[in-house]
Design a protein around this nucleic acid. Structure first.
Lengths: 121, 121
DNA sequence: CTGTATCCATTTCGATACTG
DNA sequence: CAGTATCGAAATGGATACAG
């Protein structure tokens, strides 16, 4: 509420709303965040297995962006074979309640029947 | 929490999480929802002015999908010139608290400094 | 194991002109 | 006013091969 006082001026680009969206855009970013929340510390290929439909390229670039945005922490162990762990930062963790809310909303409204559009109010 | 018990099986497609995401995908859908929440009853070109960067095509297709998903109610007044009003359905309104949360999160974390990724945990 | 590079397919978005 | 149609641009995502 009130977050959109300036909506008339189309200043979306400067609202916290659009800022948050810019961090979680991309087909799999929220899924990755949720995965890291559930499993806490996860390696690259482990993540790939959890999110089986993601491609290496997308996983790689998404992780890089999430890291750059401070939502994910990447820890590299310089050894052979390489070992890299990913987990949520505090900042990233603070986003989880919102993802949870999305989850719950979906569970509660999945069977509302999407065709209730006709029931005018 | 617990919404992702089955994440190991990569059953994202069946979670409420991905269901919700499928409703609010697209560059402007959440913005449109928020706009309708702020202004309650809005006409097509009015919306276009509020969200100045959206194209007619995207606005049109987004509204159509939001309506099909039961989040938005479209009311047409058969007159010349035509008049059409859009507003949130109850279902759509129930999504607003989540959008608000996104908004607040962004406002609070905008200045965390996105480069805090290095501060391991 | 943890990625990157390349190339390609698909999806999404936008500008403009036009219709009822 | 409220859109649609068309075309093209751009972003996104995927498959595969390869590198350190």
């Amino acid at each position: 509420m009130g977050c959109f006082q300036s909506i008339e001026e189309a200043k979306f680009a400067e609202t916290g709303f659009s800022y948050t969206l810019s961090l979680i855009n991309g087909k799999y970013k929220m899924t990755i965040l949720y995965c890291l929340f559930e499993f806490e510390v996860v390696r690259f290929n482990e993540l790939k297995r959890y999110i089986s439909t993601i491609s290496y390229k997308t996983l790689s670039s998404s992780l890089k962006e999430l890291e750059a945005d401070g939502l994910v922490v990447r820890t590299e162990y310089p050894q052979i074979p390489p070992k890299v762990e990913y987990r949520l930062s505090e900042r990233g963790t603070s986003l989880i309640p919102i993802l949870d809310a999305l989850c719950e909303w979906g569970d509660r409204h999945r069977d509302d029947g999407p065709t209730c559009a006709a029931s005018n109010k």
